[in-house]
Design a binder for these strands. Structure first.
Lengths: 267, 267
DNA sequence: CAGTGGTCTAGACCACACT
DNA sequence: GTGTGGTCTAGACCACTGC
């Protein structure tokens, strides 16, 4: 079965393929069957055919639906599981990943207490400082793939651990998908912000990129964290993406790192 | 074939298995065949049966050697490849991962220029400040899994990008495995330090953990980086591990982040 | 017990690299 | 052409979950 495409749309690039357009006469991009199946399942996820936390159809069902062997479906799901888009549970099924009902409360938060495990601190105390609607400046728009002046939602909050304010962050969200989000809705909700985004707005964050710097605390941040201005803080700029690499959140945070540290694993 | 062990030694824990000892009467830990094969290949890697950059035997050969099907060997190698211990190259073979001959010069360095790709800067200029033999203090020893007072090698160096000193770092290495390392040997070598470790000392770094903080530049660091003291800097403490999770390097670095940033991908 | 994901096998064929 | 890893299939059986 030589490169039969299940997809009538434009061919998608295989993983390691260079982005250079193939010269005329060259072999068209080869796409293994399981990659095509993966894209089909991915579309189901994007379209919300199965919601976060719900099971997707069994491997046998999907194999029958797509007319391929179970092994091919398995390999497609393997990759989705490796990307944390779905979670396999033996004997039960394969489930759409979710930020709610997770073992770790904050999947994307890498800040750890210097001593003791992350769980030992108890939940973070959260305080919304403000939440307002405004028009995207040029750089905010660029990060969110919007046009300058399009409506965005901005909110500022402080996270404290064991009574010590540790994180102050500004969050920008595209106005469209998050229409109706208010400070009071956020304040009432207990649980990760990304879980609320899933439940209330159907936006599932899949991955994120962070740029980390060291900066001196400015006056507003210093006040919110109860520190003298000029204190060194970690500056974290995060862009979070939903399916299809669509940016859905920009977050600029400042972390105190006198009792905590940002933990990163390299391999 | 119910849980036949190829290994006569103590049973190894499967990936997700909790570390609690199984109560008497419970089913003994189940280990899939491919996991056992993986451990066998891993032993070959640790023992230096195949050196970094060299090919390991073909899947067919390994399947014959271990008396299992090619598919089982494949799954074992798949996991080793996912952990970056080996690299598969279609049509050529599977090769032991190496820090030399890599596409990216520094596999573990996450510092990126704010504009332009990492390659656009050209190679980092390196300067060894000093390199001395001494006895491990308590905290250094703990990080390297040594006893206090055991011999260690300490070196300090500065990395500059396009003429701007950007990183100052102290490196501690266990004295035993790195016997004979000198400042002049390091100065002569062009290429990643971890590549030299492979070639000269047979030590292959497999993974690393980093703890990141924001700190104020102290006087010595400020002088070396050409900055006023008190300037915020990124503090990176890294422990690098070779096979078997054995720590082989402690590194404490300070990064300027006015023209560069530390990039991290979350998923 | 039935249904799920997980393992293992054997064989056929494809894509790629080298010679 | 030969040998490598990569894909795909079909079938058997195992481990785990829940009815």
């Amino acid at each position: 079965m030589a490169n039969i495409n299940f997809l009538s749309a434009a061919p998608f690039a295989p993983p390691g393929e260079p982005e250079t357009p193939a010269p005329a006469g060259k072999t068209p991009a080869f796409s293994p069957l399981y990659q095509q199946i993966k894209v089909l399942i991915l579309r189901g996820l994007q379209a919300g055919e199965w919601k976060p936390g719900e099971p997707i159809p069994s491997e046998m069902e999907l194999a029958a639906r797509f007319r391929v062997s179970q092994g091919t479906v398995r390999k497609a799901i393997d990759e989705l599981a490796a990307e944390n888009l779905v979670v396999r549970r033996q004997g039960k099924g394969t489930f759409v990943a979710t930020h709610a009902e997770q073992q770790v409360q904050y999947r994307f938060l890498r800040l750890m207490p210097d001593s003791g495990d992350p769980g030992s601190e108890g939940p973070a105390e959260r305080q919304i400082i403000n939440c307002k609607r405004l028009r995207a400046s040029a750089d905010i728009a660029r990060s969110l793939a919007l046009k300058t002046g399009e409506p965005v939602l901005q909110l500022r909050r402080v996270l404290a651990f064991q009574g010590t304010p540790t994180i102050v962050e500004d969050v920008w969200l595209p106005g469209g998908p998050f229409k109706g989000l208010t400070a009071s809705r956020l304040a009432v909700y207990s649980g990760p912000m990304y879980a609320l985004f899933e439940i209330e707005f159907g936006v599932h964050m899949v991955r994120a990129e962070e740029k980390i710097r060291a900066v001196a605390a400015d006056l507003p941040a210093a006040k919110l964290l109860g520190l003298p201005p000029g204190q060194p803080l970690l500056s974290i700029e995060r862009i979070a993406f939903t399916y299809n690499d669509r940016p859905m959140e920009l977050r600029r945070a400042l972390y105190r790192t006198d009792t905590h540290h940002y933990k990163n694993l390299l391999s």
